[in-house]
Computed example of a mutant assay.
Amino acid sequence: MESYNAFMKTLTININEITIFKYLNTSDIFQSFFNLNLRFNTLLSSLNNLHHTIPEDNQCENIDRFCRYIYSLTILGKVVVNLNRFKHIHCLILHDPVDTLLQQLDIDNLPYLEYLSIPDVLFRMSSMYQKLFSNRFPNLKFCNLFECETIETILPWTQTLSLCFLKIGFIDFYVYTAILSACPNLYYLKLHIFQSYLKLSDIQPHRNLRKLEIYSEIIDWYYNDQLIDNFLRCLPNLEELIIYRLISKIVDPIPDYDWLASIISIRLSLLRYFIFSLHLEYDLAFIDFITTEMRRQLRKLFLNAHKNRYQSRFIIN
């Protein structure tokens, strides 16, 4: 009984100490408790989900004592960091990284990488695409490159089997099919549609993609529908579709528009959820012109077009 009580007391102390760690950043935890005694060192070494952020104004921080314990790392701005020191990173977020940091993104430095987000790099990403779509990160499951540059040149890609969730920037139909071919296990894809006149006749179906988000700033709705039709024609098992589209001052064609209902009926027999988000251009006069009654009418037209064949939602903002 005494040994049990002693065990429970030790367990309670350990839990309380770990709870305290949740309120401190990683640097403060190791600065305060590392090498304090053997028990604290044991506790610190047992932590397996630590996050650390390196801000742009703190490049000289001493991270040697805890870098091997970091699970998730965020680097802000023009910071020069040796990623090889963070061997156990599973999650990496880079905001406006320098070239030397991008060049380090490889399996040798990041053997356990599962989550990668580079949300705001407009250029210098060509080599990253080659690594991403050629299985240079065999454990990578989630990748966010949504605000990155347009992919214009495709080098020979092999397949990356682990990638399931991808957010990519502006792509045309040719790059889109190349990505689907390189990522056969892709489950979720978010993209920014790029105007293209290219059509491919031989398209292999991608049977694992279940959720697709398409952002489009193309004002010509009927031409845009042709592009979306091309993007949907190879997704026979898609279950959720989200479309973000702009609307200009010209609203006359909208009453005759079928809100992609005919395309969906042909291409997506398994669709369960459809969200159509309509974004008004930033013109105050036009925004004022879209009255409450007009919004109600647009929503009614949308719902009538889809007729409860699946769950549908119309958003206008």
Rank of each mutant, 00 (worst) to 15 (best):
I63T: 12
R65G: 06
F66M: 05
C67T: 10
C67E: 09
R68F: 14
R68G: 08
I70L: 02
Y71S: 15
S72K: 14
T74Y: 06
I75S: 05
L76S: 08
L76W: 02
G77P: 04
G77Y: 02
K78H: 13
V79K: 00
V80K: 15
V80E: 15
V80N: 15
L83D: 04
N84R: 13
R85M: 11
F86W: 07
I89A: 03
C91Q: 15
C91D: 15
L94M: 01
H95S: 08
H95P: 03
H95C: 05
D96I: 04
D96R: 09
D96T: 08
P97W: 01
V98H: 00
V98G: 03
D99Y: 11
L101A: 03
L101H: 00
L102M: 07
L102R: 08
L102D: 03
Q103P: 01
L105R: 01
D106P: 01
N109F: 00
N109Q: 08
N109W: 05
L113Y: 02
E114T: 12
L116F: 05
L116K: 01
I118N: 02
D120W: 03
V121F: 07
L122E: 14
L122D: 13
F123W: 13
F123H: 13
F123A: 10
F123L: 14
R124F: 11
M125A: 09
M125T: 09
Y129C: 00
Y129T: 06
Y129G: 04
L132P: 06
F133E: 04
N135S: 03
R136P: 05
P138K: 04
P138C: 00
N139F: 08
K141M: 07
F142L: 09
F142Q: 10
